[in-house]
Amino acid sequence: MTFLKVCFLIFVKDLKDEIRKKENILASLFFGLLSVVLFHFAVDSTEIDLSKDGSGLLWLIIIFAGTIFMQNLFKKEEENGTFYALILAPVDRAAVYLGKFAVSFLFLLILEFFLFALSFFFFNFPVLKSFFWLLLILCSINAGFSALGTLISSLTVNQKGSFILYPLLLYPLLFPLFIAAVSLTQRFIKAQLSFSEPWLRLVILFDIIFLTVSSLLFELITEE
């Protein structure tokens, strides 16, 4: 079976399962909605204009809600005891990793569209300025976030206390991505984005490094 076909089959399998069960995506979306409403009460809206200064808060919600989804990426394999079957399948393990990566990438994108739309609705967040730039920011951030999120998720499979371990492992590693996401969104709001933007280059570098390293490490950690 070719590499891409394996990726695609894993992607479709997880997508179908998620559409059937809906528990992960619904939990993430509801958490997002809850957090957006809570943030209204967390800041003094007469002092802070969330339509201008809310990008940091929005990305915090995305990271937390994204975690809910991503830490369960290998959950069904864990519950059914099929994780080792998946790993022992005579296919390239990097393809398994990339299939899972694609699922988390897609669901993060859905979550982000939902949250940006909510922010537009509640706080008049200027999301409609340029769809192209918004999509570019979201995709570039998602690639790095999903790369590390998927790897850490595979590491904590069958691990006692994986719910505590997951954020503990992931959040410290996401600092550069988070800072870049906030900066890029702030520039997006001010319509100051261009292709020569250094933050964009930093994010792309992050994506390339961690997508490559994570797929290589996935092969090594599943060798046992």
Partner: peptide, 23 residues
């Protein structure tokens, strides 16, 4: 194994953290 992955990714993360914070 988990610790080894964290050490590798963490070390590779350091220059990016430094760049991001400097900017």
């Amino acid at each position: 194994t988990i610790a080894a992955v964290l050490s590798i990714i963490g070390f590779l993360d350091v220059p990016l953290v430094n760049r991001a914070i400097s900017w």
